[in-house]
Design a protein around this nucleic acid. Sequence first.
RNA 1: GCCUUAGUGGCUCAGGCGGUAGAGCGAUGCCUUGGUAAGGCAUAGGUCGGGGGUUCGAAUCCCCCCUAAGGCUCCA
Length: 609
Amino acid sequence: MRVLFIHSDYLKYQTKNKTKIAEQIEPDQKEGYFKDVLVVFTAVEAEDENKSEEIVPKVIKEVEDVFKKIKAEGIVIYPYAHLTSSLSSPETAKSILNNMETILKEKGYKVARAPFGWYKSFEISCKGHPLSELSRTITPEDKIQEIEEKDIESQWYILDQGKLISPDEFEFKSEELRKLAMYELGKIKSSGEESPHVKLMREKNLADYEPSADVGHLRWYPKGRLIRDLLADYVYQLVTHEGAMQVETPIMYDLADEAIRVHAEKFGERQYRMGHSKKELMLRYACCFGAFRVLSDSFLTWKNLPVRIYELSTYSFRMEKKGEVVGLKRLRGFTMPDLHTVCQDLEQSLTEFDRQILMCKKTGEDLEVNYEVIFRATEDFYEKYKDWMHQAASKVDKPVLIEILAERKHYWICKMDFAAIDYLGRPIENPTIQIDVESGERFDITYVNEDEEEAHPIIIHCSPTGSIERVICSLLEKTAIERNEKAPMLPTWLSPTQVRLLPISERHLDFALDFAAKLKDHNIRVDVDDRVERVGKKIRNAAQEWIPYVVVIGDREVESGEITANIRKNEEKKTTDLDNLVKIIKDETSGMPFRALPLPLLVSERIAF
RNA sequence: GCCUUAGUGGCUCAGGCGGUAGAGCGAUGCCUUGGUAAGGCAUAGGUCGGGGGUUCGAAUCCCCCCUAAGGCUCCA
């Protein structure tokens, strides 16, 4: 519901024509004149439908609060559809407005209500003091329930080699796990420093803020876009290897669909809504909506299961609070690999969960990012599947943080979250696996079981890497953590330029171009710094771009055909030839996706973003 | 969203107790054809985040807004 309060010297209205939805009125309601009143312009919205019992007390409270502050003589409720683009049915609106009037009268206020569904002329004189114009959005969510949820505290443990130990007593061998535990238990102190990745993403020309979009939406430059694509290719390889089928589904959904609405409301205020005169739409916060709709319309039998549906959401949208949006770590629009696995029953989902733990663990190894693990379950689930949980945790090969929730708050009963730890010691939530016991039924996803009966499956949600942006965030943060030990860089397979050639003078350019063409034929991203600058400067610039292999081309190289590669990773100079350089890079990037360099070969032809 | 702080050439910043701006990097031009982390000289480039107000006059003072950083809170 939307409400606009105007504290006015007077309000005068006169009914003109009826609309189709006009209410019956008495002759004395045809016009009205009120002095020193709080006018409550009100629009009842689609989301208030059937929520009269929740919405009315809340709006009454708002009216009373404002009324007491401004000390007006009376209240006029004025139906005003134009405050929203998503109106409720006229019946709901009439009933809510009538209720408001009745309750306020019972409370002893002098209340009038302008007739509903009539065209009216009106004149108003706003007093103009600071409280004389106020607007409110009132939502029907049940706040009381939220408070209750917060009150139920979880139990926290470290699970190490089959033993549950209190985090206070555990002797942490991993500083990162300790930081994660302290953060989750709310015991970490903030240092007030900036996240290094924000500066790096801009400095390295990967991405930048776009002030003309909403907060938390980035523009990506060619290098950043390349890295995103390579990571997307990587996840695609990984999940298709696991038997997943890729789909693509719409980014927005109609809230008139009951299942969509209920699943969307699990996300509360963080939904991105889109107003529209006839439809109330939401932008997806994950791929669940599309995947579930596809699965709901698919014919599945027990022989098909488990079925794995994969989508990379470019984008998912979450209305994160403005003050929390930061760099690549928390965005309002982000790219999430999302794998949904349909399982016959809980037993099958546990087998799949085991596989997915290994898959998530592998991404950490492939990306060279250390993850610490939080394993969460409801108390019921933990009691029943303790043995399974302990063996599942053992797959991580190190102690994990355990949260046991008193009762199920969300759609999952068990989940495993993998988090990298950033430069400031805070977790970056990356991969996740969740067992969903609600959505099968809610979205009417069914399969035919062995007894030829229809049954609702268990669904596992899994993001093997977490959002692509957060992967990049983790990689950049890692360079900052390690900057005292080694030269910062991205893994070679993700480095935009893998080899840079530095011709010393113009007469070495042809040789360099020929060398570059050959590297390019081997699917190596190479470029040539042909600018008229000194070698020292070109070396420095290449280092600033974190280029893994830098080769100076001068008379010696042209004559001998041998080159010396400056290898950033170990700060080594290696004299070798073209074939061997190719081999070194191929070995280093083996099994990882390749894409061509989306920039001109010649550095002199590039533009500054 | 709230609290605190900030926004000055493409980038990083200096200056501002009211009299319309400076540096370094980068860019451009010329010289230098140079062997492993910044060669030299010159030139261009700014409605000082946006809008209002006070004032003869605002980058500077006041108000509102936008954006960012840190914190709070939150993270299905």
